[in-house]
Design a protein around this nucleic acid. Sequence first.
DNA 1: CAAATAAGTTATAAAGTATAATCATTATAG
DNA 2: CTATAATGATTATACTTTATAACTTATTTG
Lengths: 160, 160
Amino acid sequence: MSMAKRKIRDAAAQVDVSDAVLARFLGYHLKRAQTVLMGDMNGAIAPLGLRMITFSALAMVVANAGLRQSQLADALAVERPNLVVILDDLEERGLITRDRVPSDRRAYALRPTPAGRTLFDEATAAVAAHEARMLAGVSAADRAAALRVLAAIRHGAGGA
Amino acid sequence: MSMAKRKIRDAAAQVDVSDAVLARFLGYHLKRAQTVLMGDMNGAIAPLGLRMITFSALAMVVANAGLRQSQLADALAVERPNLVVILDDLEERGLITRDRVPSDRRAYALRPTPAGRTLFDEATAAVAAHEARMLAGVSAADRAAALRVLAAIRHGAGGA
DNA sequence: CAAATAAGTTATAAAGTATAATCATTATAG
DNA sequence: CTATAATGATTATACTTTATAACTTATTTG
């Protein structure tokens, strides 16, 4: 069987596939982009021993020193029990401390260590560089518009 | 203890929390928006017995009748083994059929049933209505810009 | 024709996310 | 003031999603 004939037969046997039926939905693009970005970003900070969720937690502790676990869980939309293991990791690696709050001895105040601040700086640079690479071909105006749209989705779910 | 005093003490005990440190990253907004949209969307089509992934699979079969499982898995970026159970569900409910391909008897050609097409129409309307609600306050220009950004992320990951 | 490859499946594991129950402590109602 | 309710953190656990390995059957290739 000739190469030409084989190609024709293969073409007949396999339908051309398009995701146009889904591409009309922003939610579809959102999910696909999120998967790609998250995977790629995790790769970018893996050398620092971080994942996106651990980086987020560390960043929030650096920027909001003294906050409590429940506040952090709320801010990141992570269930409290799941945050515990994330903070265990950061604490064991000497990046943050859990300090008992004198005025409420149930609570822990989370604070970064010097090592935590240093790693945060490195990771922030890595994440920023990675995003810059991913958005290289995108105009600042489009980037700003995308931010507005994402914020609207995040805050307006089920609204009106 | 007076109300005023209590508030002062509480304010001292609990730090104000802001996620500004993360808000500079588009990836953060992307993840938050995706979580919200996905959850809300799943709620919108749950009455039809669908989730986003099963709706996506059904839609692709309707729009690309005759495609094979491996093509569908590639198109949706789902691992082949995971697609099997999704299609099992759709097939058992009489929404699609798996037809042996005569020219390649390893493969199945996926086709929608009339019931599948009907459910697809209903679900598409529900999803479209839901997205319209979520994006009510967003201009068409912003929506288009967001689409461009998401497409760039999806296709340009790690690129140059 | 034998060996390598591909389609689909099964089984399983790893990761992410959610729920219930518990302990210690603080706040509130009577 | 004390009994009760509520909160912060934790443990244990379950559920969902996603990924990997191995297998069967069929096709392709050397």
